[in-house]
Design a binder for these strands. Sequence first.
DNA 1: ATGCCTTCGAATTAATTGGTCGATAATTCG
DNA 2: CGAATTATCGACCAATTAATTCGAAGGCAT
Lengths: 193, 193
Amino acid sequence: MINKEEFRRKVIISAGQIFSHYGFKKTTMDEIAKALKMGKSSIYYYFESKEDIFEAVVLHEANILRNELTTAIKAVESPIDKMRNYVFVRMKSFEKLSNYYNAIFDKNLDHFEFIETIREKYDREELAILRLIIYHGARKKVFNVVNSEYTAMAIQTTLKGLEVPLFWKKKEINIEKRLNAILDVLFYGIVRK
Amino acid sequence: MINKEEFRRKVIISAGQIFSHYGFKKTTMDEIAKALKMGKSSIYYYFESKEDIFEAVVLHEANILRNELTTAIKAVESPIDKMRNYVFVRMKSFEKLSNYYNAIFDKNLDHFEFIETIREKYDREELAILRLIIYHGARKKVFNVVNSEYTAMAIQTTLKGLEVPLFWKKKEINIEKRLNAILDVLFYGIVRK
DNA sequence: ATGCCTTCGAATTAATTGGTCGATAATTCG
DNA sequence: CGAATTATCGACCAATTAATTCGAAGGCAT
C-alpha cells in the first residue's frame, strides 16, 4: 500500500461491514484479513488489536452519523412532520449500527456502563451520537429479544419520552421546542412532561 | 414440555432465526439455548447434535419454499409478467435463506459438491428446492463479495440462463414453455438458447 | 417409595482465535 | 548497485471457547 492512512481507511470500511453484521465477538481477524485479501498478521502492522480496529470503525460511523444529524438539525425551520419523517427514516437506516450495541453486549456492559466508559474517551458531541447508536441498538433489541429486564425498562422509558414531543398533538407547541425536546430525549435521556 | 414434537418445532423456529443471521458456524449452542431459555444440555435431549438441528431447520425452510413455489407453478395460466413479478418478489424474501449458503461455505463445499451431498439425503423435490436456496444464496454473494472465481462463474451462468426465458421479448413463445424454461434453469441448471 | 421423563451444571475434549515473531519480500534511498 | 527501511506473511502459541457427555436431581404418576 502506498499510504498508511489510506490502508487504514480500507480496513475500517471492510471490517465495518463485517462487524455490523456479526458484532464484535463473532467477527474474527481471519475474516477481516480474508476480506482484505491479506495475511492476518499484516493487519497488526496497521492496527494494534481487534479492539483498535473496532474503535476506529465506531468512530468512523459516528462521524457519518454526526454529519447526518447536523443536516437534520439545520432543517429546524421546516414543518414538524417533515422533521419527524426525517428522523424516523434515519432511524431505520441506522439499523446496521445496532449491531455495535450487540458488540457492547458481548462485553457485558450495560447501557449506562457503556456510556461511562465512552465518556472518558470521546468528547461531548461523540458521546451524544454514541448514545443515539445505543438507543437504536436497544430499540431493535426490544422488538426482538431483550436480554435483561433492566435494559428493557430503560428503553421503554426512552420510547415513552420520545412520544411526548413527537406525537403529542397540542398544536401550539412551536417547532423548535419540539425538536429540542426530541433531541434531549435521544441525546441526553431527559424526558419532559 | 408436554409434547416432544411440539418442542422440536420450537427449537427449529428459534434456531432457524439465529442460523439465518449468523450461519451455521457462528451460531452457538449456547445462543440457541439462551433463546429458548433452557440449559444447553437439555437440547441434546431432543436433538442429536448441532448439525441435527441445522438439518431440521433447512428441511423446514425447504418445505415452506416448496409450498410457495407450488402456488407459483399453479399460477401458470396468468400472464408472464405476473409470474415474473412473483418469482422476483419471492427471491427477495428468500434472502434469509441465503445464509444457509454461507453455512455451506463454512463447510468448504462448493455449489456442486453440496448438491451431491444433498442428493443422497433428500428426494428429488427437496433437491430442487435446495438448489434454489443455493441459487439465492449465490446471488447475494455475487452482489457482495465473491469468494472464488469458480463460484462466481457458476452464478453468472445461472443468471444468464435466467435472462433468456424471463426477458427475451420474442412474443410468440408461449407461457408454459417460458415457465418451464425458468424452472429448468432454477432447479436443474439447464440453460436454453 | 419406585421408576420415568425432563432438565441442568459441571467436566471433558477438540477446535478456534487473537496475537507474536522471525523470515522474507518489496521498496526507498544513498 | 546495495543497504536500510517498509510491508507482508506463515508458522506457532497460549488462552479461550464451544460441542458434547454424564451423572445427579427435580417433578410427577403410579
